[in-house]
Structure formats: structure tokens, C-alpha cells
Design a protein around this nucleic acid. Sequence first.
DNA 1: TGTTAGCACTCTGCCTCATTGAGTGCTAAT
DNA 2: ATTAGCACTCAATGAGGCAGAGTGCTAACA
Lengths: 351, 351
Amino acid sequence: MVWENELNERKRTILKSIIDNYIESAQPVGSRTIARKHDLGLGSATIRNEMADLEELGYITQPHTSAGRIPSDKGYRFYVDNLMQVQSLAQEEMMRIRKAMDERIEEINKLFRKASHIISKITGYTSVVVSPQLSRTRIKSIQLLKIDEKSILVVVVAGGGIVKNKLIHHDQVVEEAQLAKLTQAANLFLADKTIGQMTMPVAVELQREINIPAEVILAILESVDECIRKIETVDIYLEGVTNILNYPEFSDLIKAREVLDLLSEEDVISDMVRSAAKKHQVDFRIGSENQIDEMKDLSVITTSYGVEGKNVGTIGVIGPTRMTYGKVVSSIQYIRELLNKEILRLFGDDP
Amino acid sequence: MVWENELNERKRTILKSIIDNYIESAQPVGSRTIARKHDLGLGSATIRNEMADLEELGYITQPHTSAGRIPSDKGYRFYVDNLMQVQSLAQEEMMRIRKAMDERIEEINKLFRKASHIISKITGYTSVVVSPQLSRTRIKSIQLLKIDEKSILVVVVAGGGIVKNKLIHHDQVVEEAQLAKLTQAANLFLADKTIGQMTMPVAVELQREINIPAEVILAILESVDECIRKIETVDIYLEGVTNILNYPEFSDLIKAREVLDLLSEEDVISDMVRSAAKKHQVDFRIGSENQIDEMKDLSVITTSYGVEGKNVGTIGVIGPTRMTYGKVVSSIQYIRELLNKEILRLFGDDP
DNA sequence: TGTTAGCACTCTGCCTCATTGAGTGCTAAT
DNA sequence: ATTAGCACTCAATGAGGCAGAGTGCTAACA
């Protein structure tokens, strides 16, 4: 799509200057600014000519005749692919992040929230952390507990200290010993097939064997399934939504509202962030590259974290297309590493 | 504070007209408008004089010399206390609400979220539902489960189908039978005192009796306590935050941002909504009556729901001081009733 | 042939000024 | 006690003019 050699060295330098400048100032940048600031030994008129070319090729546009140029989505795309320098974090910032992440957090959801919070603080944009999707195979055990005469608690334990439960009520008599047997049966089954497959016929057989009413067994199975579904559901930790109000591109209230509304829909976010990123890579989705129309002025930067390919979640930053890409990339990478370390600590060498 | 008889009948009528008008139009209202719209058989000049009085008494203010009047917080206060008519919901709206609440929801948190959502939809403001705070006395039972050689799952069950759990890791050997004994002991204790009191000395005694290492016992106790804390923690369901952007009083981006930031802090919200409302009453906090400075342009309307005085939570609506108080009151009351019914269904006659 | 100085032109942003309209307060008449 | 009338105030609106930033084009230059 983008013809790699379409741009010679000089055009690239100029394009980079324009974008760097625009990212910083949010103002259309003109030929004189470039000529003065980064002295390339060129006069403004020359740069004007080059800019005319860049515009024709679609990398930059003019808001109106007598204004400077601003990058187009295509321009940003070329920038992140070829021109951008990853701007490493200041020592002081790294300290700050490490310090914040260092206090041992024992609950995984708090860890994610914290990570998300830090990202939004450090970048100044909106951040998303999506928890890893745990797969069905990682269920460790199932427990059934008699709470009182009429209720049974179903507990499903997965790797990484994740536990979900559901309380069910019934009006049959069920003995503790019977439950224990059923628990055993369920766990045996689990080693083998998925619980979802353990339906009617199996239930009937169990009923004969253990003598628990079929409807109770079914209710239990349903609850187990629900717990598993809950375990498989990813959580979304969104932080710093109001940050976008800081940027002039959203000083229009209508637009701002549109974006804020968008960000309050969880499914949109999870779509948004569904990263195409390969391991250890950072993925960019710039402006109109997002499917959703309301996002044409937003960019999303994502990367995935997690151990050993399985069990991966996503970190993302959402901001205006005019984003400090270089800075965000390094932030996101740094936090990914810290997050990986913490997860390894929490999940351990858990199968 | 407000001298009930400070205002004669005519002044009241005029004040009510001003406020009704202002709530609708968001424009300062002048004497002629009043004279024309609600014909009280009075000329505009008369009304002008009355308005001058009302201003002197502090019920209304002038944004600038030649503008109409707008209500002050004191004015609104008098309005909600003495003048406001509760504007009952349209048949069609009641239908809509009932329909939305009618689909049986089995999980209590989903119920709250839904209720909150409906409130914000129907009123057009931001809504909060705070879950009931369950008290320590309502803990039903404690369960300890051996998950594997190195981990124990602590489960605490409270009334109303609420269950919290925590997984702990250790590197001692603990037998299932020992755990069972400990479970028994803990539950006995629970009937009596609160778990929080079961500390070191008791732990030592138990250790001798059951022969579980003291540190494991302590870890378990700590987890139990944490679960109880979690049960006691209220959840906050906030919906429609971006609605405030619809109102002209927040068309200033700085202000809007301030408010949005405020609304994203959970503890502020829970403070905000901590209702002084007596049972079946609706409580208003208008503008500067809120302690927080950033809220001087916001009003909060709250009421409490829940069964039989115990187990109460709060419903609240947050909006500009220029709020459609009459409408909000009836919405909030209607939804409270539906919510109460649902809760009764879910919690049943649960002790 | 590539580069650049110079110039005419364009467009936005901002300032000022006048006008309009809504509303008030006061006074005098009813 | 009420109100018509009038002078006055102030915000909002829009027109006109100016300054500044930037462009495109042309012609001259190395």
C-alpha cells in the first residue's frame, strides 16, 4: 500500500519534522518553521515545494489554503512504521513506575487496575488493560459445599488463584456424603472432557449411582458451567477516560461527548483493543484504520503481555491521532515487562 | 434557617414561576415573562418589585444588571421544601421502566447495574446505586477447603447469596481432617463473637488442639477477615456520567472536566450519596450544601431502598442544581419500589 | 537542473465599534 | 398598592478592518 520508496531521504526528514512538530504543538506547521527549527540547509521555498509533493502523495493535508500542514492518517502510518524514534523513558519516570508497581499486590485484579492507572498517568491518555482469557483447560478443581438444608455452594478453582462460585437453592434433601461423591465424579470428568459435555445422560447415570435428584444435579452442572464462563470472561480495566478532554482536538463538546460515550461501552473497548500484535510487538491502529466511525480522530496502541504465549492479555493506550507515539511505545513496553514479572510471581509455574 | 413565613403567598407563586421557568429554559427569567406566561393578574412592574424583594432575601440572583433572575441555592432549597410539585411519571415511562426491570435477573449486582442504568436513562442525569452494606452479624458460615498440597481456599458465606473467597498458599502439610475441625471451630466462634476477635491467643490454643501450624491458622484468619471486609464493602454502580455534558451549565470544558474527574472517584461518590434520608423519604443536597467545592453547581437527590430498615442501600441522582426535581423524585421513588420488590424476591425471607 | 528570494494572494484570528434587545429600577400617576 | 412609562445597563451579535502566518508561483541564480 505505502510505496516504501515513494519518499526520498529529504522528503522523509521533512515529513518527520512536520509530524514531530505537529505532535508537540497541535498547530499546522509551515515551511518556515521547519526551515528554521531543524536546519537542513534548505530554504523555506524548497521545503514548500517538497511539502506540495507530500501533500499530493497524501501524507499531509492543509486545513485551509493559507495554513500550514498537518499529517494525514497515511502520514502517521508512515511515521510509526519508518520514521519514529522510540523515546525512552526518563530515569525519573522509570523510578516512579517501578515504585508504584513494586508494592506487592496479591490480587490479580488490583494488579491490572494499578497497571492501567499507571499507564494513563504516565502517558496522559486513556489506558486499557484487558485481562488474559483463561482457557477451559486450566480449570483445576470443582468443589461442592452444603451450606444449609436448602443450598449448595458450587466453587470452581482455576490456575492463578482465580476462584468463582455460585450458590444454588433447591428443596430436596441432599446429604453431605452424596455431595462428596458427586464432587469426586465431577473432578474425574474434568480431567477428561469439558464439563459442558456432561449433560442429561450422564446426569441420569450419576443420579442412579449417588442418588441425588436429577434436577439438583442439573442445577449444579449449570452453575459449574456458569462459573467456568465467568472465569473465561475477560475483564477490562479502563483508566483516565477524561484525559482526552485535555487535548484541543476534543475541545468541541459534541465530539468529546461522542468519544466519552464510546469509551463507556465495554464491548467497543474490547473490540478496539483486540490486538493484532505479535508477541513482543506493538500494534498501532491510526484514525480511520479503526473500523468505528467515531474513532476517526483516535489512535489505539496495543501490545500483549502474558507468559509463554498462552494466557495473553492486552495493554492498550487510546488517544488522539496526534499522539506522542514514541513515548507511548516505550511506556507500554516498560510496563509490559513489569506486568509480566508480577504475573509470573503470582501465577508462578502454575500449569 | 429559612424563615417559613418570610414569603407571602404571592412571593411564593412568583418564586415558583421563576424556578419552574429557569429549570426548563436555563435562561435567566425576567419580570415580563412571568407576567405573560402565568397570568396572575399582575403587571410586570409589580413583579419586578417582588423580585427585588426576593433578591434581597437571597432566593434569587442576577447574573448581571440587565439580566433576568436565576434561583440561588437558597431558592432551590425553598422550592424543594415548599413549592415543588412532584411530577408523576407518564404512563408510557412507567411501562418502559417496568418492562426493563421485569426480566428476572438472578444476580444481584446485575440488578443494581440495571436499576442504575434505567434511572440515568429516564432522568437524563447521572445515577448512582449503592449496594446495601451487609453487617458482620449476617455472616452465615465459613468453609475451608484443601485445594492442593500447598493451598487452602477460604470461603465466607453471607445472607442473600453473597459469597466471597480467598485462596492462600503455604508450605506446611495440612490434612483434610484438620481443616474440617478448624472449620467447625471457626463456625462455632462465629455464632458468638466476631471473627476479628479471634487472634493470637485463640490461634495458639487451636494449634495445640488441632495441630495445624500457627502461621497457617493466622493466614486463614486473615483471609476470613478480608472476605468479611469484602462482604461489608459496598459496591457503587454509576451510570450516565457523560449526561452532564448535555447541560449548558457545563459547556465550559474546564468545568466539565472537573466534574467528570470528580465522578470517577469512587470514594467521593460514596460520600456524596451517603444519604441522610429517612425511610421512604427523599433527600436533597443542593449546590453548596455539598461539602465539596467542585460540586457547588451540582445537586444530589437520594433515597434509600431495602427491606425492613436493615440492609439498606442508596439510590441517587446527580445533576446540575437546575434539575427537574419534580420528575426526578417520582422516578427515583418508582424505581425504589420495583427494586425493593426484586430484592425481596432474591433475598427472600432470608434472616 | 535544483534551489531560493521575492511577491501577490488567501485565509484566520482578533480587535473595535455600533446596534439590538432584553431586562431593570425609579418615578409619577392611578 | 399597583402600574405605565422612561432612562439606563449590559450581553450578544455582526460588520469592518487589520495583522500575521502561510502558500504558490515566477524569475533569477549557482
